[in-house]
Lab assay of single mutants.
Amino acid sequence: MQRVNMIMAESPGLITICLLGYLLSAECTVFLDHENANKILNRPKRYNSGKLEEFVQGNLERECMEEKCSFEEAREVFENTERTTEFWKQYVDGDQCESNPCLNGGSCKDDINSYECWCPFGFEGKNCELDVTCNIKNGRCEQFCKNSADNKVVCSCTEGYRLAENQKSCEPAVPFPCGRVSVSQTSKLTRAETVFPDVDYVNSTEAETILDNITQSTQSFNDFTRVVGGEDAKPGQFPWQVVLNGKVDAFCGGSIVNEKWIVTAAHCVETGVKITVVAGEHNIEETEHTEQKRNVIRIIPHHNYNAAINKYNHDIALLELDEPLVLNSYVTPICIADKEYTNIFLKFGSGYVSGWGRVFHKGRSALVLQYLRVPLVDRATCLRSTKFTIYNNMFCAGFHEGGRDSCQGDSGGPHVTEVEGTSFLTGIISWGEECAMKGKYGIYTKVSRYVNWIKEKTKLT
């Protein structure tokens, strides 16, 4: 034993070699072989497995989906700052455009905790909710729209109204504003409101030439003092309507412009014939205590009207009353817009006519005020429907199939267009061939041609 100890002390290297040989010859039971080890760690190889990531292109799944990435790591994937920024906006807080917040056709661009709407022409605001041009839906104005110097929408209202708090709607500024039905039992019968379409306001006024200088022999019209197929109006439903009495009662109609003036057809009036105007009328054979009678003290036909040349060209006249009318729910003026808007309103496509005229061709006159909704007829169809001249200051309205029309005794009465609950004068009943005849239409004086003249002559002093 002493000898062994001496050998170990003198030859430590020998001992180490012996131990190493023993270990190498022993069977290893701690580690699995290569094949079995792979069965336990069965993990798919990654895209760049075996390579240094710093030297390969980034992978979106590896960089940002398996674990949260930084902007720089995302930049490695896209290799483009702009594309990385677009991805980053949604990656950080989701897609803010998912709810489609942009209105009126706006395009949404996502941002971090926010979004941006790219608005089409005519709109602005956070969600493109603000109209900035009158060309689109009248700028959301209830009545009139004008573009300011910086191309912003400025709404306005006709006389007797003021802008509401929203700067879009119009509200009454006087007790009985024009064009409004205020009798409670008839307010439910107000005709369907007309909503502004998209309009090209630059070209809204037709490029028409008034044929002022045409000389033409007097034409022989049949029954051209021209509501057939209409309905009984309720008291106060058309408070701007008046009836004219002269040699015979209810020979023509008219509309209240203001307390002192009536507008009617020029062919209705004769110099030297006494005319009485009755406002607030409903049943011409009954006294309903809503009527107001006034005498006409002055007749002003349009300066281009000449019955000797043509009885229905420039067929418009103004009547001055001896005493002002007292405005109330049964006696209310009709609204008159400017030339541009009167023309736009007419193009809405349908209007209402009213009167006490004959209820059928050569038949009896109506006792109760009649009204009828009539569609506008395109000019080409209008011209083809008659052998008589249709001037540019006239328009056609009615039904091709016949059966409904204005008729004798309705002449001078109103053709009105309702705009968001307020009625505007767009025409004056003038003439036609018979009444409600198939293929024939009622012919009306186009008020847009005469609004400046009306307003100039009827100013209240």
Score class of each variant (00 low, 15 high):
Phe360Ala: 09
Gln57Ala: 03
Arg140Gln: 13
Gly439Asn: 10
Ile275Leu: 14
Glu434Gly: 10
Leu211Glu: 06
Val326Gln: 14
Tyr371Asp: 03
Asn310Leu: 04
Trp261Gly: 00
Ser354Tyr: 08
Ala26Val: 13
Phe395Gly: 02
Ser354Met: 12
Ile15Met: 12
Ser354Ile: 14
Asn42Pro: 05
Asn5Asp: 10
Gln2Gly: 13
Cys335Thr: 00
Trp431Val: 13
Glu259Gln: 07
Phe395Thr: 02
Glu281Phe: 10
Trp240Glu: 00
Cys119Gly: 03
Thr225Leu: 11
Asp322Ala: 07
Leu321Ile: 07
Val227Tyr: 10
Glu231Arg: 12
Cys155Gln: 01
Arg46Leu: 02
Thr381Gln: 12
Ile300Phe: 06
Phe424Asn: 00
Asn104Met: 04
Leu19Pro: 02
Ala207Trp: 11
Asn222Tyr: 13
Cys268Ile: 01
Val257Asn: 01
Trp431Arg: 10
Asn328Met: 02
Phe360Met: 15
Asn80Glu: 07
Ile454Ser: 01
Asp315Gln: 01
Ser448Asp: 11
Ile136Pro: 11
Asp200Arg: 10
Pro197Thr: 13
Leu211Ser: 13
Leu14Gln: 04
Asp200Ser: 11
Glu418Asn: 11
Glu61Ala: 04
Cys102Trp: 02
Ser169Lys: 08
Glu231Ala: 13
Pro175Ala: 12
Thr84Met: 04
Ser385Val: 13
Phe395Ile: 01
Gln2Asp: 11
Arg364Leu: 08
Phe348Trp: 10
His415Val: 03
Met8Glu: 11
Gly421Asp: 06
Leu321Ala: 01
Lys387Trp: 05
Ser423Arg: 09
Ser148Met: 08
Asn104Lys: 04
Lys247Gly: 10
Phe238Val: 07
Pro324Trp: 03
Cys268Met: 01
Glu54Pro: 01
Tyr115Phe: 12
Val228Ala: 14
Thr386Tyr: 11
Gln167Pro: 03
Ile336Gly: 00
Ser255Thr: 14
Tyr312Trp: 11
Thr133Phe: 07
Glu86Gln: 12
Cys108Asn: 02
Val277Tyr: 01
Val228Asp: 10
Leu425Gly: 00
Pro101Ser: 05
Cys141Ala: 00
Leu189Ser: 15
Tyr371Lys: 12
Lys260Asn: 07
Asp378Ala: 09
Thr426His: 01
Val199Arg: 13
Gly439His: 09
Ala337Thr: 03
Thr445Lys: 01
Phe224Ile: 14
Glu340Cys: 03
Tyr201Ala: 13
Arg384Ala: 13
Gly351His: 05
Lys347Arg: 15
Ser354Thr: 15
Lys109Asn: 11
Gly230Met: 08
Asp95Glu: 08
Glu281Asn: 06
Lys260Gln: 06
Pro197Ile: 07
Lys311Ala: 08
Glu98His: 11
Thr209Leu: 14
Glu72Thr: 05
Asn38Ser: 14
Asn258Ala: 04
Trp356Cys: 04
Glu323Ala: 12
Gly413Phe: 05
Leu383Pro: 03
